[in-house]
Write a protein that binds this DNA or RNA. Structure first.
Lengths: 257, 257
DNA sequence: CGGAACCTTGATGTTACTCAACACAAGTGG
DNA sequence: CCACTTGTGTTGAGTAACATCAAGGTTCCG
């Protein structure tokens, strides 16, 4: 590795530029007028930082604000009483992982930081005012939660009916497409702060088996995956291996490789 | 029509009484005023019938209407290229399984009838007019899709991290609670038109294994399941076996046994 | 009566899990 | 600076929970 780890996150002024990611993301799934764009940028937000392993929101909470990911990565997860963990989604900058809390009071799962993460918390009231003033944004947000649901259904197919190789290949395909859509995957390479154990808990596998499958993929020249950095070496074969079809991502503009 | 909100005045005219299930269901998840109630009942609908195995909506379709289940059962499913099938949701009378098509053009999965089913098709335009006139209903519908998402996430945990016994017990618990909420499970007994192969495809198992687990449950005196009829004999132990916690269903009123 | 759809049972096979050990890097406190 | 710890990746051996394959049984229905 070269000069990668900027230990100390850059400190932004009182309006972090990452706020634009929300606009960028919504533009990816709906039309956003310049008025709406400005209203989004003017939302009152409280920025907080989290270390890896900390929870932004916890199962059982009844939040009165939504969190917008500015920098970092989070995952949606749930624990069984005996500690088994299922990760149900990864979220990237621009996402609002608990948007649903606007309508569903009590959280039925937790949201944790996968790496040092900055999140902007927006009061529910502000969100309601915003969507009241701009119904177009309300539909954009609804659409966003629907796509989130479509992704979790696709994960359901994976865990239910794909074998380990297909599952892992599929996850890599999905992350590439999603990160490309927010310009975070130049050269078919992206960072993903997931350990092999995280991947295992996302795909319903054991960490040991994830390790072995990744070695297969490396041997086959499909990908590299070291230091939390994934590079796709053979997109065509990887897609085939995954039985990947990006329709479910409902991306407005094509980000195909 | 001033007095129409009286519970016992069944003056639906020539409208099918099943239409009320939609009201019943929405009342279960949000407050519905009597005006909104009437507007729901006045929605233009085209009723169509389907035999078991027929699709109401198919992957790739771009629908311009939503389907409301009046009578019967449907499931949401998707096929892999080689025929493997994953069922992602069961839907009961009162559900609008493709409500999302209002915002997401192309269907990324199919909806099939599990038994002879009557569905009422409502033009998207009528739905948009309705939610425009009654924003409260818009939020009720959004909430409905969010709960649908919560259920599919719970299925994801099941398939990812529960073993076969837990999965099957959990499905039974969920169906009981959901059907009780629409008064379709008197005496902890309900009909579910799923074959063992259907259950297998919903839970990521083989039909043979489903059969064996069901036999275990029968031997243990937890349930009976014959002729598409399920009876819960020991709710307490079944819940324990399933690690069941109904929070994710977000039911407004408790329907606990 | 014959067939179709579904359920049941047994035998066999395999995917992926568990357990356990070790390697390696980075961070931490002495 | 080192010894120690902690987190992560890697490898091997043994095993369990499933799947698959195949056959027979039941029920229902035209």
């Amino acid at each position: 590795m070269q000069q990668h780890t900027r230990q100390h996150g850059p400190s932004y002024g009182d309006r972090p530029p990452e706020r634009h990611r929300l606009v960028r993301k919504l533009q990816g799934i709906a039309d956003v007028t310049s008025e709406e764009r400005q209203a989004l940028l003017d939302l009152p937000m409280t920025v907080r930082s989290y270390a890896r392993g900390e929870d932004l929101v916890r199962e059982g909470d009844v939040p009165n604000e939504c969190c917008l990911i500015l920098e970092g990565f989070t995952f949606r997860y749930k624990l069984l009483p005996d500690g088994r963990r299922q990760i149900m989604a990864f979220h990237t900058p621009g996402d609002i992982p608990d948007l649903q809390s606007l309508h569903i009071g009590v959280m039925d799962h937790s949201i944790g930081a996968m790496m040092p993460t900055q999140a902007a918390f927006i009061p529910h009231k502000s969100m309601r005012d915003l969507t009241h003033a701009y119904p177009g944004l309300l539909h954009a947000f609804w659409r966003d939660t629907l796509i989130d649901g479509a992704i979790s259904r696709e994960w359901l197919i994976g865990v239910g009916r794909r074998d380990a190789h297909e599952r892992i290949a599929h996850l890599i395909c999905e992350m590439l497409r999603r990160l490309k859509a927010v310009d975070l995957a130049p050269n078919d390479t992206f960072k993903i702060p997931a350990t092999q154990a995280d991947v295992a808990d996302a795909l319903g596998l054991s960490n040991v088996h994830v390790n072995r499958v990744l070695q297969d993929f490396r041997r086959e020249g499909l990908i590299t995956w070291t230091n939390y950095t994934v590079s796709i070496l053979d997109w065509e074969r990887l897609q085939k291996r995954a039985l990947f079809d990006a329709t479910y991502l409902h991306q407005a503009h094509e980000a195909a490789a």
